[in-house]
Simulated scan of single mutants.
Amino acid sequence: AGTEIPEPGPIRLVGGPNRCAGRVEVLHEEQWGSVCHDDWDLNDAQVVCKQLGCGDAVLAPIGAKFGRGFETIWLDDVNCTGVEAALSECPARPWGDHNCYHGEDASAICADSGITISTSVRLVGGPSRCSGRVEVLHNGVWGTVCDDQWDLREAKVVCRQLGCGTALSALPESKYGEGKGPIWLSDVNCKGTEASLTECEVKPWGDNICNHVEDASVECSEVDIPEEGPIRLVDGPNKCAGRVEVLHDNRWGSVCDDHWDLKDAKVVCKQVGCGSPLSALGGARYGRGSDIIWLDDVDCNGTEESIFDCKARPWGEHNCYHGEDADVVCAGN
Rank of each mutant, 00 (worst) to 15 (best):
L162D: 06
C300R: 02
A155P: 05
G22L: 02
A280T: 01
E201I: 07
V145R: 03
K175H: 09
K191G: 14
I109A: 02
G302Y: 08
D97M: 13
V268T: 12
D112E: 11
E227K: 04
V223H: 04
V141L: 09
G132L: 05
G236E: 04
A92D: 08
P237Q: 02
E304F: 10
C159D: 06
D215S: 00
P17D: 09
L42I: 15
P182C: 15
G33N: 07
S196P: 06
I293N: 03
Q161F: 07
E305G: 13
G22R: 05
A86L: 07
V83R: 06
A195I: 10
G282K: 00
N43S: 15
I115E: 10
N238D: 03
W150V: 05
K175S: 02
G332I: 15
Q46I: 11
L295P: 09
E222G: 11
E4R: 03
Y101G: 13
H248Y: 07
A241F: 01
C190S: 07
S34H: 03
P230E: 01
E227T: 00
V83K: 01
C310V: 04
P226D: 04
L42H: 09
K203L: 14
L27G: 10
A106P: 01
I73R: 03
K156L: 10
C300W: 08
A86T: 09
V145G: 10
N211M: 06
G302W: 07
R160M: 06
R243E: 05
R243V: 05
S306A: 15
G16A: 10
R23C: 07
D258Q: 01
V329L: 09
Y101Q: 09
N43G: 13
V188N: 00
P94M: 13
S217D: 00
R19V: 09
E222Q: 01
A92S: 13
E194L: 00
R93W: 13
V267T: 12
D41P: 10
D76F: 12
S88H: 13
V298Q: 04
I115M: 07
D257F: 10
V268K: 08
V272I: 15
N139V: 12
A57P: 12
S128R: 00
L123N: 00
N238G: 03
G82V: 12
G140A: 10
T303D: 09
D41K: 11
Q31K: 11
R133C: 04
I225A: 01
K180C: 13
G275L: 11
C330W: 14
A45E: 09
